[in-house]
Simulated assay, not measured.
Amino acid sequence: MFYAILAYHVEQTVQSWTPEEDAALMEDLLEINARLTRDGKLGPAARLGGTAEAVTLRGPGDGVVIDGPFAETKEQLLGLYVLDCDSQDEAIATARDLRRVNPTAVYEIRPIMLYLPGAPLATGAK
């Protein structure tokens, strides 16, 4: 079954890290990604841009585009992983691995009811 692991963090904390601190954390997280990829468990994963750059589409008809997500939480959704796990326990174990290297993050584990991988995207995100 596919599971989404949604990574939440206090955005101001993440933005306060020096480039070296951020790179060190990403190196640790990418080690987990590499292991999951070798095991054939990892699907798409993404680190999202800041909420200051986000917009939300809501309302009837064509909707209205408004600035930001306006979440009423301390943590913001900053990234996600899609995993192919045999059980929820396996997905939870993976989230625990992620938390070991990023202990101030919060990870929400959710089953995916429909998974459409789409077309492969070119690398080189800006």
Rank of each mutant, 00 (worst) to 15 (best):
D86R: 13
D86A: 15
D86V: 03
D86I: 01
D86H: 03
D86K: 15
S87K: 15
S87F: 01
S87A: 10
S87V: 04
S87C: 08
S87T: 11
S87I: 04
S87M: 09
Q88Y: 12
Q88T: 07
Q88R: 15
Q88F: 05
Q88K: 15
Q88P: 06
Q88H: 14
D89P: 04
D89F: 01
D89Y: 00
D89T: 08
D89E: 11
D89M: 09
D89V: 04
E90C: 09
E90S: 08
E90M: 07
E90H: 00
E90W: 00
E90L: 03
A91C: 04
A91V: 06
A91D: 09
A91N: 07
I92S: 06
I92F: 04
I92L: 14
I92E: 13
I92V: 14
I92M: 11
A93T: 09
A93M: 09
A93W: 00
A93N: 13
A93H: 07
A93K: 12
T94C: 15
T94M: 10
T94N: 10
T94K: 14
T94P: 06
T94R: 08
A95G: 11
A95R: 10
A95F: 01
A95V: 02
A95W: 00
A95T: 05
A95K: 13
R96Q: 10
R96N: 05
R96K: 15
R96H: 07
D97L: 14
D97K: 13
D97V: 00
D97C: 08
D97T: 05
L98Q: 09
L98N: 09
L98G: 11
L98T: 03
R99W: 05
R99S: 15
R99I: 02
R99Q: 14
R99V: 04
R99M: 06
R99G: 12
R100N: 11
R100F: 01
R100C: 10
R100I: 08
V101K: 02
V101N: 10
V101G: 07
N102E: 05
P103G: 09
P103W: 00
T104C: 10
T104Q: 12
T104P: 07
T104Y: 05
A105V: 02
A105Q: 05
A105S: 08
A105W: 00
V106E: 13
V106Y: 05
V106W: 03
V106F: 03
Y107S: 12
Y107H: 15
E108Y: 05
E108L: 01
E108A: 04
E108T: 02
I109T: 14
I109A: 07
I109G: 08
I109K: 12
R110E: 00
R110S: 02
R110M: 03
R110W: 00
P111Y: 00
P111S: 12
P111C: 06
P111G: 06
P111V: 03
I112D: 06
I112A: 15
I112Q: 11
I112S: 08
M113C: 04
M113Y: 02
M113N: 07
M113H: 06
L114G: 12
L114R: 15
L114W: 03
Y115H: 14
Y115D: 13
Y115V: 11
Y115R: 15
Y115L: 07
Y115M: 14
Y115C: 11
L116M: 12
L116P: 02
L116Y: 07
L116K: 15
P117T: 03
P117Q: 06
P117G: 11
G118W: 01
G118L: 04
G118Q: 12
G118D: 04
G118T: 04
A119Q: 05
A119G: 07
A119L: 05
